[in-house]
Design a protein around this nucleic acid. Structure first.
Lengths: 250, 250
DNA sequence: CCAAAATCAATCATAATCATTCATAAGCAA
DNA sequence: TTGCTTATGAATGATTATGATTGATTTTGG
């Protein structure tokens, strides 16, 4: 198992359980205690978790709030510029689908003056849309703890009753060989269904997600275009073989 | 069990029951008395609880949470006691519908230890349920900006797919002659449909809403029982002619 | 008020976890 | 291949958490 894979696995487990024990990780991965200790130390330095005796817990800061440490702030800036760029594709009065996720959340301030009708499956997005005075529909369904995304049969059924002019999705990874990936199969189903009901679909990803491989569900999203920020030219070329790519203007 | 998990567990238990016994903790966790004593000492030093002989209690300052705007704090005390009383009707593992509204919102802390599955059409309720770690479903539909309630065809259709053991609704007025009233016809439709899919329905109203007449939609909710706080005896008698009434125990 | 029972603080030995070091294995460029 | 870097796993002594024991303190029930 690759270092990055382990890191993703640890963070995913942490996201679900709020706390992980080192010994559990030793059992579930094939890595040694030393290696996993190093992983935890690194992830702590990145601010992704907080080590405690015997394992690690989610950092104390609020999950909803954008994080304040250096690295995440930099990510946030990128997400914001991607989101702002993505919003320029929305026309006056469009019906829009916004996937649950932090990047799509950042689009909301830039949608206000376009009088859109927005459908989302994200709880924090519904709150933000409501505050922004935008006409909001929510899919409903089962609420996934922590991520605040609605999934399951209810959400899928609700999606079937809508049709979108434009659809924005977040992903966990984009790879020239494997395509789009996202960790949760249920969220993947939502994304796929939303895309199938849209005239045009855009995938939002910052460069840290490009060519990243991890445990994830692969999504088939043929018609979609990718929106990314600055990329090495070679990565860009490879990606363009599988999908149209829009790069954020600086 | 990690130290942090125990601490969280203790605080959670304390939040629910307002008081914990050391011996109960010894039984429920696998930790020794010594360890749990140390936990309590630490948590006390952090100001999270107050030790007493045999266990611990909530610190005195936590008893009254500050919160919210004027409207939602109006009659807050009454709403809280009504909500707490209403929650006693919920059984372990029940499927529960919670109407959008400030009174039903107050029920959420009292539902935690009953492991319910909760369906709601209220955006603030979904947020609170999520934070409380309760399994949550949301109807979805169109979001009404002012109230944070989901209404319309989408919400009604989603409601049709659920069935509830117990259903709690808020109303705008209760009148011995006119029955239940609520200002918005769309919300009235939601309430009616939810009630029709429940084995048992309770209407929550504080005394300020009794015998109030206003421009409103009259709802026919034959099977429902009314939960109110202190009332003049004559009002109570009149109401009992049209519906079963439960009065909050002081 | 007294005595029994329960709870408590303090101490100590043990077990678990930790940081550090070092040697080996794996990846990679020349 | 060789030489270099990086990732890994095992071993070490240090640190921390834990559980049992002790005698002191508080509550309880006459």
């Amino acid at each position: 198992m690759l270092t990055n894979e382990r890191h993703d696995y640890i963070l995913q487990l942490l996201d679900e359980k709020r706390t992980v024990k080192l010994q559990d990780l030793v059992e579930k991965t094939d890595a040694s205690e030393s290696t996993l200790r190093r992983d935890l130390t690194e992830l702590e330095n990145m601010g992704k978790l907080e080590r405690v005796f015997g394992g690690a817990i989610l950092p104390t800061r609020n999950l909803q709030e954008p994080s304040m440490d250096d690295k995440s702030t930099r990510n946030l800036k990128e997400k914001q510029s991607i989101a702002e760029f993505a919003a320029t594709f929305v026309q006056e009065g469009d019906s829009v689908f916004l996937d649950a996720g932090t990047t799509t959340l950042q689009m909301i301030p830039h949608l206000k003056d376009k009088n859109p009708v927005v459908v989302t499956n994200g709880l924090p997005l519904a709150v933000a849309l409501n505050e922004a005075g935008i006409t909001t529909y929510l899919t409903g369904g089962m609420l996934k703890p922590r991520t605040g995304a609605f999934v399951g049969a209810g959400a899928l059924a609700a999606l079937g009753t809508y049709h979108f002019d434009i659809c924005f999705l977040g992903v966990n990874g984009v790879h020239a060989d494997y395509g789009y990936t996202t960790p949760d199969p249920e969220e993947a189903a939502i994304k796929k269904k939303a895309a199938s009901h849209a005239r045009k679909t855009y995938i939002l990803a910052d460069h840290s997600k490009v060519n990243k491989v991890s445990f994830a569900t692969i999504m088939d999203l043929q018609e979609a275009a990718l929106i990314v920020d600055g990329l090495p030219a070679e990565s860009l070329k490879e990606l363009e073989k599988i999908t149209p790519v829009k790069v954020v203007e600086e």
